[in-house]
Structure formats: C-alpha cells, structure tokens
C-alpha cells in the first residue's frame, strides 16, 4: 500500500529541473522504483509529487566521450551487465552490478538510483570509487560536476540539494581499461545485502604498482577509499604478497564497521582484510594475464 501522491512525467531535463525547483523538497524523482516504492510504502509522510524520469533521454545510455565513459543515471543494472562499452572498459562494474538484488531488481533498478540512496552497503559504489568516478548533478540554475567521494556525505545522505538531480556518472579516460576487481560478502549468494564490499584498481609500470585505489563498502557511514592501504602497496613489486597482506591489515584500521543483526564488527573486520587482499590480488592478476 502506497500513500497518495501526484505523478508527473517530464519530457525533457529542463522541464524536470523546473518541476523540481517548483516542488522541492516535497518531490521525489522515480527511477527504477525498487527503493522509492518501498520507501513510499513504509513512510507515512511521503512526498507530494513523484516525478518519473523515464522520459528523459539525457539520463540514458552509455557512451564514450572525450572526458571518459559517460553512464546515464537511468541505466539499469541489467544494462550495465550487458553493455559492450562497459565490458570493454570497466568490466568490474559488471561484476558489481551482477551482485545487486535478484534479476527483477536489476531489470528495474538503476545505477543513479543506487548511488542516490547513499546506503553504506550500496553495491555499485566501491568500483566507481576505485575508478575515480565523477558525477554530474543538475538543477534549474545549471550543472555541476563533483567527484563521487564528495557525493556521499553520510549514511543515506548525498551532496544533492533538494532541487538537484543526478544526471550521469563519468569514468575518466585515464581509468578506462584500468585493471579493477570487486568482491561482495553477504550472508548468502542471491539477493543479499553486503556485509562488506571491496573493490580495487591498479596501474602497473615495470613490474611495480604505480597507482592503486582501494574502496570499501558497508564498513563506514559511507563507501570509503582506504587511502593508507593504497599507499602501502604503491611502488611495490606486483608479486609482493607481504605488501598485500600489510595493506589488508591497514585497510581494517581505516574502516569503522558496526555490530548489527547481520554480522559482528569483528567478523566485518576479518572480511575487510580478506576482501582487500583478494581484490588487490585479482586486479594484479589481470595485469599479468593481459
């Protein structure tokens, strides 16, 4: 049962942004609906206006631009799993998308919708952080671009103003083809919330790790970069397993996992170490295989 609201379907981005300006903060944009509908059913004080984004071509599609790979906010998880450009440039995104919900959720849910929930356990976050993703947000007054690290402000909180809309996600050109990997640990395989998510990307030069990005989900108020762990492995030989182990231990100190009914903080710390080690190992393995 959903509480009553007004429903609008703008035909263009400009129209959508004007509508948001008019109705914020009593408006909620509707993308895939897999989170919003649940929220509407649970929330007694729901929005007065629900704005369906399905008619906005500006929010769709995956394309290569001079700045990098642009992914529309309304691209579904299923589309990410099957997109040839994503397969070519950022296959780790496919791995992350494949772990989200069940098939039905992936068919409906969108990457933009996943990011704006800003839940600490969101599955598309870590890979995007490990690839230095940027996001474009728009309001009636204009657009702005910000790094994903600044987009997540707190649990279920983003940098979006009430009248701002997430338009697209950009993977910078330098990150395209960068070896990356993703691991999700849940209580079961199918349709599980992450206990811990981990992602890594690495650039290798002359047998050494020139640059590394490590991102963790479900272990802090937002998805985070484990920058101290990144520094541990930077400059190390790619077959230096001790360095990876040390990075895994350092990553644990950078997170603030909680105890809840899904897992204890102690178990989550264990998973952070295992996850960090494995994503680094897997990303590095790709550099030698390629």
């Amino acid at each position: 049962m959903v509480r009553s609201f007004e429903y609008v379907v703008p035909g263009s981005l400009d129209e959508a942004l004007e509508t948001m300006k008019e109705h914020a903060p009593h408006l909620k944009p509707l993308a895939g609906g897999t989170d919003l509908l649940v929220e509407l059913k649970n929330n007694l004080n729901g929005p007065q206006v629900v704005m369906d984004l399905s008619g906005l071509p500006e929010l769709r599609g995956v394309e290569e631009t001079s700045a990098g790979l642009r992914i529309g906010a309304m691209v579904t998880h299923t589309e990410i799993e099957k997109d040839p450009l994503i397969a070519e440039h950022v296959p780790a995104m496919m791995a992350a998308a494949a772990t989200i919900g069940g098939v039905q959720t992936r068919n409906m849910g969108t990457i933009g919708g996943n990011l704006v929930t800003a839940v600490p356990s969101l599955d598309s976050g870590p890979v995007l952080l490990a690839l230095d993703a940027q996001v474009t947000v728009a309001a009636a007054g204009g657009k702005r671009q910000l790094p994903l690290t600044e987009f997540f402000v707190g649990p279920r909180q983003t940098a979006l103003a009430p009248d701002e809309l997430l338009v697209d996600i950009l993977i910078p050109t330098v990150m395209l083809g960068r070896r990356a990997s993703f691991r999700k640990f849940g209580l079961r395989k199918g349709q599980a919330l992450a206990l811990v998510n981990a992602a890594a990307s690495v650039a290798v030069e002359g047998g050494r790790i020139a640059e590394a990005r490590i991102a963790l989900g479900a272990v802090s108020p937002t998805v985070i970069r484990a920058m101290s762990a990144e520094r541990v492995v930077t400059g190390k030989q790619i077959n230096d397993a001790d360095a990876l182990r040390e990075a895994a231990e350092v990553a644990v100190t950078e997170a603030q996992p909680i105890d809840d009914f899904r897992a204890s903080a102690a178990y989550r710390r264990e998973l952070i170490a295992v996850g960090t080690f494995r994503v680094l190992e897997e990303a590095l393995a790709q550099t030698t295989a390629a």
């Binding site: 379907v9 509707l30 609906g33 897999t34 509908l37 629900v50 369906d52 409906m108």
Partner: peptide
Amino acid sequence: VNSCLLLAVQ
C-alpha cells in the same frame, strides 16, 4: 520485474 514495485502509470 516485480509488479508490486512498479506503478500502473509506468
């Protein structure tokens, strides 16, 4: 899709 999470208007 889950028809409980889709509005009829959609």
